[in-house]
Structure formats: structure tokens, C-alpha cells
Measured scan of single mutants.
Amino acid sequence: DVEPGKFYKGVVTRIEKYGAFINLNEQVRGLLRPRDMISLRLENLNVGDEIIVQAIDVRPEKREIDFKYIP
């Protein structure tokens, strides 16, 4: 289970104008929005990159997770 405030290693699987989709595993995916990136820009991410993200909002009923990147 993903818990708000905890850090997780994930893989960038898709990049859109509104953010990057990060997979923690095959069943768990969330969104990293540009506003939640500190010292990292969306255009510097590539599909396949491994990054450490912090879960900031977890909505299991909608199967949605918002992430934050903190270097």
C-alpha cells in the first residue's frame, strides 16, 4: 500500500504536458505534475528513467496517486 509522505522508487512510463506518469510496480501508477517538481523540469525526464518520488495524495477509491519530486 502506498502511504502519503513516504518515498518510493518509480519508473517514468509516459510524459504529457500536464505531468509524468510514474509506475511503482505493475499495479501502482501515479502522476508527477510540473508544480510538484523541485529542481527538476518535465523536459529533463525521459521514459524509462528511474526516480525517487514522494506520495503526497493517495485516493485508493479512484486509484489515483499524486507524487512530488524532492532531490
Rank of each mutant, 00 (worst) to 15 (best):
1 D>K: 15
1 D>Y: 15
1 D>C: 12
2 V>C: 04
2 V>F: 11
2 V>A: 05
2 V>I: 15
2 V>W: 06
2 V>K: 03
2 V>P: 07
3 E>M: 15
4 P>I: 15
4 P>E: 11
5 G>R: 07
5 G>A: 05
5 G>W: 08
6 K>R: 13
7 F>I: 08
7 F>D: 05
8 Y>I: 02
8 Y>T: 01
8 Y>D: 00
8 Y>A: 01
8 Y>P: 00
9 K>Q: 10
9 K>D: 04
9 K>N: 08
9 K>E: 05
10 G>N: 00
10 G>R: 00
10 G>A: 06
11 V>P: 00
11 V>N: 06
12 V>T: 01
12 V>H: 00
13 T>C: 07
14 R>E: 06
14 R>I: 07
14 R>Q: 12
14 R>K: 12
15 I>K: 07
15 I>V: 11
15 I>Q: 01
15 I>F: 02
15 I>L: 11
16 E>L: 12
16 E>P: 02
16 E>A: 13
16 E>G: 09
17 K>Y: 14
17 K>S: 14
18 Y>A: 05
18 Y>D: 06
18 Y>W: 14
18 Y>L: 05
18 Y>V: 07
19 G>Q: 03
19 G>Y: 06
19 G>K: 03
19 G>W: 05
19 G>L: 03
21 F>G: 01
21 F>K: 03
21 F>M: 08
22 I>C: 01
22 I>N: 00
22 I>Q: 01
22 I>D: 00
22 I>W: 02
23 N>D: 12
23 N>Y: 11
23 N>C: 09
23 N>S: 14
23 N>L: 08
23 N>T: 12
24 L>K: 00
24 L>R: 01
25 N>R: 07
25 N>T: 12
25 N>Q: 07
25 N>P: 04
27 Q>R: 15
27 Q>G: 12
28 V>Y: 10
28 V>G: 04
28 V>S: 07
28 V>K: 05
29 R>W: 14
29 R>D: 06
29 R>G: 11
29 R>E: 09
29 R>T: 12
30 G>I: 04
30 G>L: 04
31 L>I: 10
31 L>Y: 04
31 L>K: 03
31 L>S: 02
31 L>R: 03
32 L>C: 02
32 L>G: 01
32 L>N: 01
32 L>K: 01
32 L>F: 01
32 L>I: 04
33 R>T: 03
33 R>I: 04
34 P>F: 08
34 P>E: 13
34 P>Q: 13
34 P>V: 13
34 P>W: 10
35 R>Q: 12
36 D>K: 04
36 D>P: 01
37 M>W: 02
37 M>C: 05
37 M>E: 02
38 I>F: 10
38 I>D: 13
38 I>H: 14
38 I>E: 13
38 I>C: 11
39 S>L: 12
39 S>W: 11
39 S>E: 15
40 L>M: 11
40 L>G: 06
40 L>S: 08
40 L>N: 05
40 L>E: 05
41 R>E: 11
41 R>L: 13
41 R>A: 12
41 R>K: 14
41 R>P: 06
41 R>M: 12
41 R>V: 11
42 L>N: 03
43 E>K: 12
44 N>W: 14
44 N>L: 11
45 L>D: 00
45 L>H: 01
45 L>G: 00
45 L>R: 01
47 V>N: 04
47 V>P: 07
49 D>L: 07
49 D>P: 01
50 E>L: 15
50 E>V: 15
51 I>S: 00
51 I>H: 01
51 I>C: 04
52 I>A: 04
52 I>E: 07
52 I>Y: 10
52 I>V: 14
52 I>K: 06
53 V>Y: 01
53 V>W: 02
53 V>L: 04
53 V>K: 00
53 V>M: 15
53 V>G: 00
54 Q>Y: 13
54 Q>T: 07
54 Q>V: 13
54 Q>H: 05
55 A>C: 13
55 A>D: 00
55 A>M: 05
56 I>R: 07
56 I>F: 11
56 I>W: 10
56 I>D: 04
57 D>K: 14
57 D>P: 03
58 V>F: 08
58 V>L: 06
58 V>Y: 10
59 R>Y: 06
59 R>T: 05
59 R>N: 09
59 R>I: 04
59 R>H: 08
59 R>V: 05
59 R>E: 04
59 R>F: 05
60 P>R: 10
60 P>H: 11
60 P>L: 11
60 P>G: 09
60 P>Y: 10
61 E>L: 10
61 E>V: 09
61 E>I: 10
62 K>M: 12
62 K>S: 12
62 K>C: 08
63 R>I: 07
63 R>W: 11
63 R>V: 07
64 E>H: 11
64 E>N: 07
65 I>D: 02
65 I>Y: 08
66 D>L: 12
66 D>S: 10
66 D>R: 13
66 D>P: 02
66 D>K: 09
67 F>C: 03
67 F>G: 02
68 K>D: 02
68 K>N: 05
68 K>H: 07
68 K>L: 10
69 Y>H: 06
69 Y>F: 12
69 Y>P: 02
71 P>A: 10
71 P>C: 09
